[in-house]
Amino acid sequence: MTDLPAPEKRVWLRHPSLRIGAVASLVFLLVGFVSIAWVPYPIEVINVGAAMQDPSPAHWLGTDHLGRDMLSMIMKGTLTSFVVAAIAVAIGALIGVPLGLAAAAWGGPAEWFILRVNDFLFAFPALIIAILITTIFGPSAINAMIAVGIFNIPVFARVARGGALSLKTLDYVGAARLAGMGPIEIARRHILPNIASLIIVQATIQLALGILAEASLSYVGLGTQPPATSLGLMLKDAQTYALLKPSLALIPGITIILIVVALNLAGDGLRDQLDPKLRRLGGARGAA
């Protein structure tokens, strides 16, 4: 038994930007995961004698100011960036989605309160949250995750609430209530599956934003700390040497751009796919 009817599945694969974005994102993710098991050179080993080499068969992307292999650094950095952004998305979604659903389900004072908290969090961009957290607990990748994650909460809450509100008035939710289902059961069986696509789209977009945010935080020293590395941290190191060797700044920068573009393409493609107008057309065709 399939979840989706067949025609939708074919369209899914036909969308070019979705296909390109999804494939590229997966490639970067794969590169990141490979770095757990294997990198060309260990990045903990400093070899100042081999610093700032140009790309060569031994070092495909050259070496940095400490003689570390840039390709290895990029692989490890990609993993860190993904992990930080993904955990931040998970924090945002796991807290934000239930909050949004609760706001939609209960309405009244509960909704008012959740919306105000939401507005409030919007007033603190991730960076300000990060500054506060860092001042208290000191800089680290974990704190960067938490800061970006907190900032993600209102985003997911809003998406979930919006989706749930538009579904709440639909009669099948009423029918489920008549069948004696409670709000949690209804959310699980009727609301979540139907807003899952919206949430996935948002998660893709927030993942891209998270990678950018991690880069910013690490760049100003509030995120990932050495000896671990991330794409943002590589840029921080590169700033000093950018005049001598611009490729130290270009390579991680372009990597960030490529990852973010790939994720955004996938997100945009997915959203086009799920655009209600397009879907309605598909639905009408299915019924005919």
């Binding site: 038994m1 099948y172 069948a179």
Partner: peptide
């Protein structure tokens, strides 16, 4: 609007049987 598009018609029709 009265049927969940993600469930089969049978699942929806049988829903009140939980009563």
């Amino acid at each position: 609007g009265s049927f969940n598009p993600r469930l089969t018609i049978g699942e929806s029709v049988a829903e009140p049987l939980r009563l």
